[in-house]
Simulated assay, not measured.
Amino acid sequence: MQLTSYETASEMMQSLSAQIASELSAAIALRGRACLAVPGGSTPGPLFDLLSQAVLDWANVTVMLTDERWVPTDSPRSNTGLIKNRLLVNSASAARYIALYAPGLDHVGGARALSQQVAPN
């Protein structure tokens, strides 16, 4: 494994954004679509800002969270708000988003609904 060091966090985020965009483009070229699972919290926000501007076929990208609090999506504690405000904007607004939280369901029902959304066709 090769280690890469960066002078600044901004430089690291730019490199990571370019790498993710490249891998998404390669997956789309190979399979016609790609999935991007991302964490919540404030740490990935700067990465999302950069990635949202990447030029790629966002209409064939599905985005979902790896973690979420079981709160409505308009709650300040919801990671969905972060994704919608910082990643699913600019070029990335064409991406499909699968939310982990399902209004009107408890976490068990929500897990079932989510399983149906992500099951292969």
Rank of each mutant, 00 (worst) to 15 (best):
P46I: 01
Q14A: 07
P120V: 04
A99R: 12
Y101W: 04
D49P: 10
Q2H: 07
G45M: 03
T4M: 08
F48I: 03
V55I: 02
R69L: 07
D67R: 09
A95D: 02
L56N: 03
V108E: 08
D74P: 09
A21D: 09
S22K: 12
D49Y: 07
C35Y: 13
L30G: 01
S5D: 01
Y97S: 00
T8C: 10
F48T: 03
C35N: 13
A119S: 09
M64S: 03
D74W: 11
W58P: 00
Q116S: 12
K84R: 01
L105V: 03
S15T: 01
G109A: 05
D74E: 11
A9H: 12
Y6K: 07
S42V: 10
C35T: 14
S17P: 09
S22Y: 14
S93R: 13
T73A: 15
L56H: 02
M12W: 06
A37S: 11
G104E: 02
Q14D: 08
V38C: 07
A37G: 10
N121M: 04
D74N: 13
T4N: 10
W58H: 00
S15C: 00
S5Y: 06
L24N: 08
M12S: 05
A21N: 09
L56E: 02
I98F: 06
L50N: 12
W58N: 00
W70F: 03
V38S: 07
W70G: 05
V89P: 01
I98M: 04
S115F: 07
L24E: 07
M13V: 11
Q53S: 10
S78P: 02
L16V: 09
Q14E: 06
S42H: 06
A94H: 05
D106H: 13
I20R: 05
A111N: 02
V61T: 10
N79C: 14
N79M: 15
Y6C: 01
V108T: 09
T80K: 05
A26C: 02
G104Q: 04
V108F: 08
N79R: 14
L65S: 07
T4R: 15
L3G: 07
S93G: 09
A26Y: 02
T43W: 10
R112V: 13
F48S: 03
A29Y: 11
P46T: 01
S10L: 08
A99H: 13
P103G: 13
L16Y: 05
N121R: 04
I98G: 06
T43M: 12
A119V: 04
A9N: 12
Q19Y: 07
S78Q: 02
R96G: 03
T43C: 08
A94P: 07
Q117K: 08
A95S: 04
S25G: 09
L24W: 09
D49H: 09
S78K: 02
D57R: 01
T73L: 13
D67Y: 11
S5C: 04
A27G: 07
E23R: 15
Q2S: 10
A18Q: 15
N85G: 00
N85W: 00
T73N: 15
L3Y: 08
D106C: 10
S17L: 04
A94G: 09
R96T: 08
G41Y: 11
G40T: 06
M1T: 14
L87W: 12
A54F: 05
S91P: 01
A59D: 14
G45I: 05
N60V: 14
A102C: 11
A54N: 05
E7I: 06
H107Y: 14
L87N: 09
A111V: 00
L47C: 12
S25P: 06
I28A: 12
